[in-house]
């Protein structure tokens, strides 16, 4: 199973009413679960129309190795333009191979001139950056592949 297939599954789950999805093949066990955005408190939201829930994806290896390796995909929580650095002349927040802490800023997504700094949900190592700087991103689009640590 390659990354594109995983992304397709994430999109399918995101578009569906399902809360989670589990898939097991010879080589991989995949568990996807929608982020816990409680819909029970819908009344408190300013809008009745609440769009598709975002997803987090976790790919688990079929055979647990000695080092428990878990890959997490960090997805875009909103539509906008993806920026890898806080300003055009500043260095990127993160590079592939960087070790990141939970809460560390990873990128900015801009929409309607509002800048949203996206922080890491997990501690780990950046394995892949899936979007080029200054490119538009869709809701739920995978941005980073992170190998979870600890």
């Amino acid at each position: 199973m390659n990354l594109d297939e995983i992304k397709e599954l994430i999109q399918a789950l995101s578009d569906s009413n399902l809360a989670e999805l589990e898939l097991e093949t010879d080589k991989v066990r995949l568990y996807l679960k929608k982020a816990v955005v409680s819909t029970a408190q819908e009344g408190q939201r300013p809008e009745e129309t609440f769009p598709r829930l975002p997803v987090t994806g976790q790919v688990l290896p079929a055979e647990p190795s000695e080092v428990q390796e878990e890959t997490v995909i960090i997805a875009a929580p909103m539509v906008g333009v993806f920026y890898r650095a806080p300003a055009p002349d500043a260095p990127p927040y993160v590079e592939v191979g960087d070790r990141i802490a939970e809460g560390q800023p990873l990128c900015i997504i801009e929409a309607m001139k509002m800048m949203n700094e996206i922080e890491a949900d997990v501690a780990g190592i950046i394995k892949e950056i899936l979007v080029e700087n200054e490119q538009p991103v869709e809701y739920g689009q995978p941005l980073f592949v992170v190998e979870k640590l600890g």
Binding site: A35, P54, P77, M114, N116, E117, I118, E119, D121, L143
Partner: peptide, 14 residues
Amino acid sequence: GILVEAGSASQSLS
């Protein structure tokens, strides 16, 4: 002018 900046985890606004 207005400049709104947000901080969020990938799923929730902090």
